[in-house]
Amino acid sequence: MAEEVSSQMNSLSISETNPSSSATISLVSGDDIVFKVEPTIAKEMETVQSFIDETDGKITTIPLPNISSHDLPYVIEYCEKSIAGKITKEFEAEFVKKLNNEEVKELFLAANYLNIKKLLDFLSQVIADRIANKSVEYVRRYFGIENDFTPEEEAKLREELAWTFTGVDPDDEDEN
């Protein structure tokens, strides 16, 4: 059975600021760690909320087999900021600074799975920034893509779409 998380993990829940009587929701990570969160956090996660709604709120323990206990605190942190209306450019810059490429991908998958639109949009931008101006090989590795073109096919495609491969270097100077 899942073990309760340490007090450090619990501090991630917003229970301190809002000691309301409503039942907390337990999110169980793929590696069986329980994260207790306020219902408002669960609301941010559409997948979780629709599940709670379907059972008329009777079920408050939600297993999330695809999300590890390493990633879930990040997701919860983002949702908390979002609820508090404190998603600023500065917060996002700090948030993303902590994450390596693998973690960004993991979080993106988690956000997609939990259907958290704001986090998904934000991480899409992060991924786009991280693959911007990178070589084809780099992007293949990043997405985990196996190149199934034959060298001839690839050469032909490059020729057909020469207008995108020659002379036009992407310039992301104005991206923000």
């Binding site: 101006n133 293949r140 997405f143 893509i145 995108t164």
Partner: peptide
């Protein structure tokens, strides 16, 4: 979902993803 990510890329690079694989 992939298209969602691509929509944040500069179009020039987004078009260049055609070379990644047949998909």
């Amino acid at each position: 979902v992939l298209l969602h990510i691509l929509s944040y890329l500069n179009s020039i690079q987004a078009v260049q993803t055609c070379i990644l694989s047949t998909r």
